[in-house]
Design a protein around this nucleic acid. Sequence first.
RNA 1: GGAGAAAUGGCAGAGUGGUCGAUUGCGGCAGUCUUGAAAACUGUUGAGGGUCACACCUCCGGGGGUUCGAAUCCCUCUUUCUCCGCCA
Length: 423
Amino acid sequence: MLQLQALRENTDGIINALKKRNIDAAALIEEVLTLDEKRRAVQTKLDATLAELNKLSKEIGYLFKSGKTQEANTLKEQTGSLKEISKELNDDLNRTAETLQSKLYQIPNTPHATVPFGKTPEENEEVYKEGAIPQLSANALPHWELAKKYDIIDFELGVKITGAGFPVYKGKGAKLQRALINYFLDKNTAAGYTEVQVPHLVNETSGYGTGQLPDKEGQMYHVGEDDLYLIPTAEVPVTNLYRDVLLNETDFPICHTAYTPCFRREAGSYGAHVRGLNRLHQFDKVEIVRIEHPNHSYVALEGMVAHVKGILKELNLPYRILRLCGGDMGFTSALTYDFEVFSTAQDRWLEISSVSNFETFQANRLKLRYKDSSGKNQLAHTLNGSSLALPRVLAGILENYQTPEGIVIPKVLVPYCGFDSIS
RNA sequence: GGAGAAAUGGCAGAGUGGUCGAUUGCGGCAGUCUUGAAAACUGUUGAGGGUCACACCUCCGGGGGUUCGAAUCCCUCUUUCUCCGCCA
């Protein structure tokens, strides 16, 4: 959520920055500013009324104490109309503040200066590429065929017990999943990220805190009976650990990693792009989250990118890094790098990680602040990234490491798996 | 699931209808002392709104109520603790 003060002081700058998202926010921001002005005007009136009421109450107190009951009762009669006025003003204030809040929720984060213009994923900017694309034999298979051939993932079984998008991992497939989770967690821990295990269901407040609500209401599974949401990413519970928290400057950086399953309704997805492991309703992901001092958050972002690069290099998978264009960037992000691994048998790039700086956008909603050197409370910066999302890494490994004799397990994973091939 | 107790500033913990946004301690910050640090001493130190700055307003778990006036009384919800029951 953008800060009202920033909207007031830098209205044109923000409208301009939001143009990168291909939206004209002028009217919406105008509305917000009008509501803000109204809110302040009503509040001023209410404050004056309450001040008068407080003054009378105090006087009445003194009078009663000194035994001047009659005078006190006379003053009492004056309070009635003031109370009525304050009630009306208070109702007006609440209504205005609520409308203002709902409008504020509709404004996305302002893109960073380096975010390229563009509307579609095709306009994302490739900033890095590494790893040779292997030459596979003519009869190379896509991962869903390989999964069937070696009986390591059963999609039909998942359909039977739940529905499409809920695969069942079997045998070496299940073990490879577990190996990847442990490998990622170990890499992240070694890099200074403290591991946390967090709930997989969150309340509505947490959803608002990181910005999934109200923006992505329909994308999360909602447990109506208890009004809880299944997490779409560990970002939500992990970042919300720091909701309503006041940090010291010396607490930075705060680095966490967490493994969780992720649940996404993926309403509106269809076709070949949802084939196999490409798009699931439930998948596993290891996430990294950082809370940073504003001066350091972009250095931290580069550090996170370098960290994910290191993992992909060890896995020896061909990948590229994209700087997302304004039109493809998430609602809450100021700058996002997507990592894509090349799925050789499908001949397409698959997103396996998304690393973002949210600046103060989430912190403002979370009330996540720190005390600066002059003793003032400032909003912190939040960042997160996947390191990594399992299914597409698995797809990449299966497809890129396939040989006529079977799937070769990447060297770094062998100690975690306890086997070096699937055949 | 049943019974009881509780929720107060960064933390601990007083306060049971009026001058209480709240005693005190710890922690933080500044200073004195010291070559420096520690200790000791002195001062300072909650958040949000509002204002050029003051004034002023709001906040004692959330919401509602009683009252001229609520941290304090009432209702309700949530959470925590203790005991009982159930249980991986």
